[in-house]
Design a protein around this nucleic acid. Structure first.
Lengths: 255, 255
DNA sequence: ATTGCTTTCTTTCAATGGCCAGCATGCTTT
DNA sequence: AAAGCATGCTGGCCATTGAAAGAAAGCAAT
């Protein structure tokens, strides 16, 4: 068996079983435990596994992402300001798509004052937040629940997103960089965001200022696919100029 | 069993039972009490448990971060009992489908102690409840959010349900009656339940005893489409006989 | 309150076994 | 032939666990 085959097999097993045990794998493939550990190290650095004592657990989110419970409470003030600005960009009676980011949740809370919106989202949390808006229409994408989070991912989620066409998309990412565009920490999230972007006429990137000059693992898109950027403080003159030349409108709150 | 699994399991048990006892856990996992105490120390430092003499109790802050406002649910004690019985019917490693009823939510809470389940549901509430079960697979159907509720309905939800085939379905209804079968109060819910029933091999109706002898608006199915009925008290000899002749197994808790 | 007994907790030490680093081997690539 | 990669092996390190002893907490009876 080729090394790459073994690695792929471990990766599949990990996604299926959610955990693997070093000694079992070593026996199964008839290699030493060291070899298995080296495979797991690679899978970890690629973001697919999180190693633990005695084995590894699946990690589409755990390793590279902070657990959602942590992310949810970080940069709260920034996110609240971003939400306020975003609210001004969305007219009543429009239909919008939101991703499963914690920033999007803040935006939704700010949008609740509006009348007659149609919301499509892959976030279970946004759905719950909107359960009392009886005059809106709220669609959920469905799909596989992302580990340690409240977002739906996978083929089902993406197919569902593709079947909608909306006025506005509001989404986030893990890093933005002038050379590499928008990046995210894992493939599942990145694919969902790509789908959201192509389903909307006006694409609004809502990110707090810590995301600037950061490069994460997976590319989402370039700046040609973004119409508006909303952030919490002025990213500086280079970015202003860069957005200008790329046809991106920039909004920021305060500073 | 990996150490992290044991810790996770204790955490789940703690959420369900609200308290755990050192000596019981030691026996259950076949480790010494010292090992259990060390796990509890970690859980305490992570904020999930508060240690007490002889064991630990769930830290009360656990309920605060639930993303949805807790609805006022009627017949709580009955539903808890139904959930306990239902839990005994579902083996580990199985895949199950649950509807958006509050009874199903209780069942899910009881099921959290099990290992390796695959759950498919049209309930945003169940999804949120299961967001911390990293070793499970949780699918949401997606669809239009039902007004004033946490369930997905409509063609998208139904299509999604139809694309799955599971071992068990656990669902509820508004009324059951020997002449009219299972009935529900609106078409949307009834259609979803029909789809759930036809997607599962073993169909478990979980209803509190107030639903007996009631007829609601829309028919869901007859008794030929039900394999098991779980309720909170003995519905009486006529029902026992009726279920017997229709090949329905009856379980009830207490009374 | 005090005493004595039992249970549980903490601390310490030792053992097991996974983990890591480095080196050697064999295979493939250049 | 040299370089690169995957793999296995060895020895030392570290995490996890269990065992044991003493401290502390609860409990019962005086």
């Amino acid at each position: 068996m080729l090394a790459i085959e073994r690695k792929q097999y471990i990766k599949d097993l990990l996604q299926k079983e959610k955990k693997v045990i070093v000694s079992d794998l070593a026996q199964q493939f008839d290699v030493t435990e060291e070899t298995v550990r080296r495979d797991l190290m690679k899978l970890e650095s690629e973001g697919f596994a999180r190693r633990i004592y005695g084995g590894a657990v699946a990690s589409e989110s755990e390793n590279v992402d902070l657990p959602y419970s942590v992310r949810k409470i970080s940069n709260v003030e920034q996110k609240r300001r971003i939400a306020e600005v975003s609210e001004g960009l969305i007219p009543e009676n429009s239909n919008i798509m939101l991703d499963g980011s914690s920033t999007a949740l803040f935006v939704v809370k700010a949008l609740k004052v509006k009348k007659n919106l149609t919301v499509i989202t892959n976030s279970a949390e946004i759905v719950c937040e909107l359960s009392d808006k009886v005059f809106w229409r709220v669609f959920a994408t469905g799909g596989l629940l992302k580990e340690g989070g409240y977002a739906f991912v996978g083929a089902r989620a993406i197919d569902s997103i593709k079947s909608f066409h909306v006025d506005y998309a509001i989404f986030s990412c893990k890093g933005i960089d002038r050379a590499n565009g928008l990046t995210d920490s894992n493939d599942n999230d990145a694919e969902v965001k790509k789908a959201i972007i192509s389903a909307a006429r006006t694409k609004i990137l809502a990110i707090d200022s810590t995301k600037f000059e950061r490069v994460s693992l997976v590319e989402i898109c370039g700046f040609g696919d973004v119409d508006v950027v909303v952030t919490d403080k002025n990213p500086g003159p280079e970015w202003a100029e860069f957005f200008e030349t790329n046809g991106v409108r920039l909004y920021y709150a305060g500073d």
